[in-house]
Design a protein around this nucleic acid. Structure first.
Lengths: 163, 163
DNA sequence: GGAATTTAGTTTCATTTGAAACCAACTGCA
DNA sequence: TGCAGTTGGTTTCAAATGAAACTAAATTCC
């Protein structure tokens, strides 16, 4: 079925200017990341009625106790609109509350409510076990390699966009 | 400015149930992938008026000469709605054409026009040089590691979502 | 003090997205 | 033949997104 197309064979120049999508790093990262994120989201979306941005906000709060909207932007690489909306939804669903900073009334400190902490504590093991599955058949050396490579790539990527 | 928050320090249980966002693999992948994709998109979005899905369709056609919508879905991991719309836009902008298969008139073979090939040939070097920058300070061994790790993770991720 | 600037965060609006419904063509198979 | 699936692909509709405009508070500078 595959080889019925008029030009079944890759038409690569073979002079170093070929682009093979399935080997192209940005493409591979994108597919991998989307697959993983959706896999995890499936674990909590229905069960807790939480979206990916909301989960990320909870993750930051779970780790740092409380944070301003700007803090969350910085730590999640989400943009401020996304964060603002995630906080809104989490507020109306009673997961977090906003405490306006009396010293600077533009800022507000976001913290989880008891309910939010409850949900967070339920999701964390799910997320971690998902990550564990993903890493299942990497040996310790490979895991270290992965860690190092992601760090390097991350640094390069930031350079790319900033320059 | 960072450490002015009420709970500046991570509040980890330290009993193995902690989730450290900045070390959490799905999160790292997501941030990295978004950063990279946006960086690349910036290269061609303005210049050629092309979106990420459109670029991916062109990349498949550039590699395989022609393909059906379903082929493209399979090769890009995009869903069929996305592909359908990308092809629509590419058709109206004169980059590709659709040739209905006379043997099965539901199917259509998509191929680049001369114009499409022209744009493709302009984008490819940009994309490749972007990838090269990203890989710049990885040595050959590290590049192989990266390749192997991405393959393994990809396989695991697919397992995750399918089960 | 007060006009001009900056900062924190929200709202608006037009576009993008994706799930589900849909359509039209093909394939059993009775 | 004819009707119950399938399959390839498109459309619909409601929700998510993001750039840009906006509000309100704080800061800077004269």
């Amino acid at each position: 079925m595959d080889d019925l197309s008029p030009h079944p064979e890759p038409t690569d120049p073979e002079d170093g200017t070929a682009l093979t999508l399935e080997r192209f790093l940005p493409y591979r990262l994108s597919v991998l990341s989307n697959t993983v994120s959706k896999g995890i989201a499936a674990l909590y979306a229905d069960r807790f009625g939480i979206t990916i941005p909301e989960w990320r906000v909870l993750a930051v709060l779970g780790r740092f106790g409380s944070a301003t909207s700007a803090d969350i932007c910085g730590r999640t690489a989400m943009d401020k609109v996304q964060v603002s909306r995630a906080i809104q939804r989490l507020t109306t669903s009673g997961m977090v509350n906003r405490q306006v900073d009396p010293a600077d009334r533009r800022r507000a400190t976001i913290a989880m409510t008891a309910k939010g902490r409850g949900v967070y504590r339920e999701i964390v093991p799910l997320a971690l076990s998902c990550e564990a599955t993903l890493l299942e058949n990497l040996n310790p050396a490979e895991r270290e390699q992965l860690d190092a490579l992601l760090s390097k790539l991350g640094a390069e990527a930031r350079r790319l966009t900033k320059s």
